[in-house]
């Protein structure tokens, strides 16, 4: 474990808490159309379920197991909230990204490019590829609606920063322990790359108090 990865995991936690806070607030100000993509949240739940299949078999540390359990539980809870509890504030007409394409693409690639052709390894590889593109329905929704509530932008900032810091962690680990993992490196670079234009708008507008609006 290194500082970069620890902060990255904490940013990941923060993003989930921001989302839960926003959904709690939306509930209290019911009627405001939620700008959160259900598809992205469902993809994240799939990512965690397919990545942590070794939750009970491979104990690394209390931290590792606790975080895995939290990520699985929170992502399923969010999907539950969006699907059942807050169904009214979801508008499927805005969530039109073809998620089956990214699921199919990640599955196909995981079957071809992986470290071992075993169920667990292919599922893990699938979760890495899927996580890289899971944010697309959410970003697609932002381009459709053209604007986002400030709390949604903070959610995306935390989420984008988490994987960006993992890239720094991988550079550090390559430098200190010659750690090489092409699958996560390339997927992580793609994942962070998808946030670049969002980060640009976030730093130039939202942090200056302006509304998040796409040009």
């Amino acid at each position: 474990m290194n500082l970069f990865r620890l902060v990255a995991d904490l940013m990941h936690l923060v993003s989930i808490f921001i989302l839960l806070l926003k959904m709690q607030k939306t509930r209290s100000v019911a009627g405001r159309c939620s700008r959160i993509s259900f598809k992205t949240q469902a993809l994240y739940a799939t990512v965690f379920l397919t990545r942590y299949t070794d939750l009970f078999a491979n104990f690394q540390s209390l931290y590792n197991t606790t975080m895995k359990v939290f990520f699985i539980a929170s992502s399923l809870y969010i999907v539950f909230l969006m699907k059942f509890k807050f169904k009214a504030t979801n508008d499927p007409r805005l969530d039109t990204f073809k998620a089956q394409y990214v699921v199919g693409g990640a599955a196909a690639l995981a079957l071809i490019v992986n470290y071992a052709f075993t169920v667990q390894e292919v599922l893990w590889t699938f979760s890495i590829y899927l996580e890289a593109v899971a944010i697309l329905p959410q970003l697609f929704m932002l381009t459709k609606t053209g604007e986002a509530e400030v709390i949604t932008t903070h959610y995306l900032f935390a989420l984008g920063t988490y994987r960006g810091l993992y890239l720094v962690n991988w550079i550090y680990r390559y430098w200190t322990e010659y750690y090489v993992d092409w699958i996560v490196w390339i997927a992580g670079a793609v994942q962070t790359g998808l946030y670049c234009d969002f980060f640009y708008i976030y730093f130039t507008k939202v942090l200056k108090g302006a509304k998040f609006e796409l040009p």
């Binding site: 470290y115 750690y179 092409w182 699958i183």
Partner: peptide
């Protein structure tokens, strides 16, 4: 692909 994943990363 040659290589192995890190078992301790989330």
């Amino acid at each position: 692909l040659a290589g192995a994943r890190s078992k301790d990363e989330l």
